[in-house]
Simulated scan of single mutants.
Amino acid sequence: MTSDGASQRQPQPAASRPAPRSEPGRPPVDSATLLQGGRCVEIRHNGEVYRLQATRLGKLILTK
């Protein structure tokens, strides 16, 4: 709490935040479809190249 009695809001951990929604009517794309059997795919977006990687633990990492 602060000295005036108001509590400060802490950012929520990523696991407790709601997932962003895709456009209505568009189903989610399966990661296997994007990765096409590999562990990494490059994605071009607005002239920049990003890498989507699958980890050994089954998580996804997106880097610029």
Rank of each mutant, 00 (worst) to 15 (best):
Gly38Trp: 05
Met1Pro: 02
Gly25Phe: 01
Ala15Ser: 14
Leu60Pro: 00
Gly58Thr: 01
Ser31Asn: 11
Gly37Ile: 03
Arg56Asn: 07
Gln36Tyr: 06
Gly37Trp: 10
Gln36Ala: 10
Ala32Arg: 06
Ser7Tyr: 11
Gln10Thr: 15
Leu35Gln: 07
Ile43Gln: 05
Leu60Tyr: 06
Gly37Leu: 10
Lys59Phe: 02
Met1Leu: 12
Arg56Ser: 13
Pro13Asn: 09
Arg39Ser: 10
Gly5Gln: 10
Ser3Thr: 14
Leu60Arg: 03
Glu23Gln: 09
Arg21Val: 12
Gln8Gly: 07
Pro28Phe: 05
Val41Met: 06
Arg51His: 08
His45Ala: 15
Ala14Val: 13
Asn46Glu: 14
Leu34Met: 04
Arg56Pro: 00
Thr2Trp: 01
Lys59Cys: 00
Cys40Ile: 02
Leu52His: 05
Gly5Lys: 04
Gly58Asp: 12
Gly38Cys: 03
Asn46Arg: 15
Tyr50Phe: 06
Glu48Leu: 15
Gln36Gly: 00
Arg51Thr: 11
Leu62Phe: 02
Arg26Ala: 05
Gln53Cys: 09
Arg44Cys: 07
Leu52Cys: 04
Ala6Asp: 11
Ile43His: 09
Gly38Ala: 09
Lys59Gln: 14
Pro20Phe: 13
Thr2Pro: 01
Val41Trp: 08
Ser31Glu: 09
Ala54Arg: 03
Glu42Ile: 03
Glu23Asp: 11
Gly38Gln: 06
Pro20His: 12
Cys40Phe: 02
Arg21Ser: 14
Arg26Phe: 01
Pro28Arg: 06
Thr2Leu: 10
Leu60Glu: 08
Pro13Glu: 10
Ser16Glu: 13
Leu35Asp: 02
Gly58Lys: 13
Lys59Leu: 08
Gln12Ala: 15
Glu48Asn: 15
Ala19Gly: 07
Asp30Lys: 02
Lys59Asn: 14
Ser22Lys: 00
Lys59His: 05
Arg17Asn: 05
Arg9Ile: 07
Pro13Asp: 15
Tyr50Trp: 09
Gly5Met: 06
Ser16Tyr: 09
Pro27Gln: 08
Ala32Gly: 09
His45Trp: 09
Lys64Val: 03
Glu42Met: 01
Met1Ile: 08
Pro27Tyr: 02
Gln12Phe: 04
Glu23Pro: 00
Val41His: 01
Pro11Tyr: 14
His45Phe: 11
Pro18Cys: 07
Arg51Ser: 12
Thr63Phe: 02
Val41Gly: 01
Ala6Thr: 12
Leu34Asp: 12
Ala19Pro: 09
Leu57Phe: 01
Leu60Gln: 04
Gln53Arg: 07
Leu35Phe: 10
Pro13Phe: 05
Arg9Val: 15
Gln10Trp: 15
